[in-house]
Write a protein that binds this DNA or RNA. Structure first.
Lengths: 159, 159
DNA sequence: GGTCCAATTTGCAGAACTTGCTGATCTGCA
DNA sequence: TGCAGATCAGCAAGTTCTGCAAATTGGACC
């Protein structure tokens, strides 16, 4: 994702207005590596701008995604996450704390996708499940408390 | 997924009862390769058993998933799909008609997942987007009607 | 700086999907 | 056959997201 000022210019170039709400969201998203949900961004935005509406957050996120400045990440369950990193990458979900991390995958070109003419893939999105570094450390030192600081995973109803 | 009679035995072995509703769902799911949603199964079940509740469908699907007889497939958006194929495989989504097909991937062991100690992957789920055979054919013969028989994709709000 | 119009914001309603709850009913097993 | 406990249907509610309309605002133009 570009810088807030570059985003402002890009919005204006598209005939979209640069409002304080949008500027705040630009700033919140910049270099955010936590893959927040719309609700999460709304909560953070609300602390700095009480009264901002969730609807506005969704609208701005949708615009950014349409402009290719933001990636919408569906993890298979739960709310859509938003990622200012629009490189060609994938995601890892920590099964212990629920954190979502960027993951770069090499060798995906060499994958043999068996469709036998049934299906011609054009793009792939991969979601890895595993353990993040913080939780791996926590598990190594104390096997009884795998989740020292972060909240528990709320939902995860797919395999 | 096992046969309906085997599932019945498996349910009883787990202390779960085998009701007519469940038997119907076992039969509907067997060899179903369309990756139906809970609502879709409910609709089909309702034609054979008017009055069956959507709640019962969800409950039974959840049980089957817990028993490893069924795979819940989250595609990143829209309702969860259910797949009686519990082999190690992935899924392809046709961007033209929305069909979901099973996809077998070779070479995933050779993938280099860059976490550099940040993330230790244990499993992966991959969703491919592309074009299914039927739509590829339709596009080849008539470029104006890419969707000859199937309903349009309803939602697809991620990249 | 002032004017004007289209874009934006907001709040609310509602859709889509899923889960929780509960009395009545039904099943498995002895 | 009878009992304990599982299951069912229906409704309510929770989560996530979108549609809508009135009031407001950004920013181009003068």
């Amino acid at each position: 994702m570009q810088s807030p000022s570059q985003l402002a210019a890009a919005f204006r170039a598209r005939g979209l207005k640069v409002t304080p709400q949008r500027q705040l969201l630009f700033a919140l998203l910049e270099s955010d590596t936590t893959h927040p949900t719309a609700e999460g961004l709304y909560a953070r935005a609300s602390t700095q701008m009480p009264g901002i509406s969730l609807r506005t957050v969704y609208t701005t996120l949708t615009d950014l995604v349409a402009m290719g400045e933001l990636q919408a990440v569906g993890l298979g369950s739960g709310a859509t996450r938003f990622d200012p990193n629009v490189d060609d990458h994938h995601h890892g979900v920590c099964d212990s704390c629920g954190a979502v991390v960027d993951v770069y995958v090499q060798g995906s070109e060499a994958l043999i996708v068996d469709g036998d003419g049934q299906f011609a893939p054009e793009s792939a999105s991969m979601v890895f499940h595993g353990t993040c570094a913080a939780c791996a450390d926590a598990l190594a030192t104390s096997s009884s408390d795998p989740n020292p600081t972060q909240p528990p995973i709320k939902e995860h109803h797919h395999g």
